[in-house]
């Protein structure tokens, strides 16, 4: 079940990615409309992070192409923000929280210039949005996992982008951080931004997202929640994993009583 869109904000065509000749993502082919909150869901090793990284140009593509705003990544970089997994960097690096958020204002052209007053204001606003202002001068090694995640999200917010790609922003975060992150996502959606989130927990996924991409090495389904989040398609995505089938049972119980009020 892959729903194709006429005027997509993201178009992935026939995308195949391989590490050492071993394909990790096969013939991914889908498109997504503007302004959606998209959950990228699938089992471990399904190629969820790889999909994000190949869209961001971080891993070499074996075949196919990616278009954002109907253009190549090179031309649209300034409109796209990426939130990597927080495990991808060394948090002992000598930098303060504000230092890291200000990196969202860097670009190849601006590296040799000073940040402007406006750049600094934007960084501070971004920190306020993730409710981390009181940590601005703290060193990044003093943060909890959830706070580190919020710093990364603030850095992406400082880019003032149109599309956000987030890799597992909810993994290993505390309740406060989760709430802060959800607030940020809802605010972004209100501003009609498009947000892609790699997510591993099916039970909470249903509350956060209105569009789903189910993947397991291939794109199994892509479309609005009601068309895609079905027992058959999830079974196809997760295979015969018993504990997950059990989890899915609970998910569908929840689905009858949506937690989101606007549904």
């Amino acid at each position: 079940m892959i729903k194709n869109i006429d005027d997509p904000i993201l178009e992935v065509h026939d995308l195949t990615v391989a590490y050492d000749n071993e394909p990790v993502l096969w013939n991914a082919d889908f498109s997504v409309p503007k302004g959606k909150m998209i959950g990228i869901v699938g089992p471990n090793g399904a190629g969820k992070s790889t999909l994000l990284k190949s869209i961001m140009g971080l891993v070499p593509i074996a075949s196919g192409f990616v278009k954002l705003f109907n253009e190549s990544l090179k031309k649209t970089r300034s409109k796209i923000a990426y939130v990597p997994q927080k495990e991808s960097v060394d948090w002992d690096f000598p930098a303060t929280v504000l230092d890291v958020v200000e990196m969202g204002r860097y670009s190849q052209k601006k590296l040799f210039k000073r940040l402007t007053k406006r750049d600094k204001e934007i960084a501070i606003e971004a920190l306020q949005k993730v409710k981390m202002m009181e940590f601005a001068k703290k060193h990044i090694s003093e943060l909890s996992g959830g706070q580190q995640q919020r710093v990364f999200i603030a850095r992406a917010l400082a880019q003032e982008a149109e599309i956000y790609f987030m890799d597992e922003p909810f993994s290993g975060v505390d309740v406060n951080s989760e709430k802060a992150i959800v607030d940020v996502l809802l605010q972004l959606q209100k501003e009609e931004k498009t947000i892609f989130v790699v997510h591993h927990d099916l039970q909470s996924a249903i509350n956060y997202f209105d569009w789903f991409i189910l993947i397991n090495k291939r794109v199994i389904a892509s479309g609005p929640i009601d068309d895609v989040f079905t027992p058959e398609l999830l079974k196809k995505t997760y295979g015969g994993n018993l504990t997950l089938l059990d989890q899915m049972g609970q998910v569908f119980k929840h689905k009858q009583f949506p937690i989101r009020e606007d549904k």
Binding site: M56, P84, Y106, Q108, F112, R155
Partner: peptide
């Protein structure tokens, strides 16, 4: 001194730097 920001971001988070178009 001139390129401090470049050395900083490329040492701290090179993948993210790449997504900003930094070489």
């Amino acid at each position: 001194l001139l390129g401090l920001k470049g050395f900083k971001i490329s040492s701290f988070d090179k993948e993210y730097a790449k997504t900003l178009g930094i070489s």
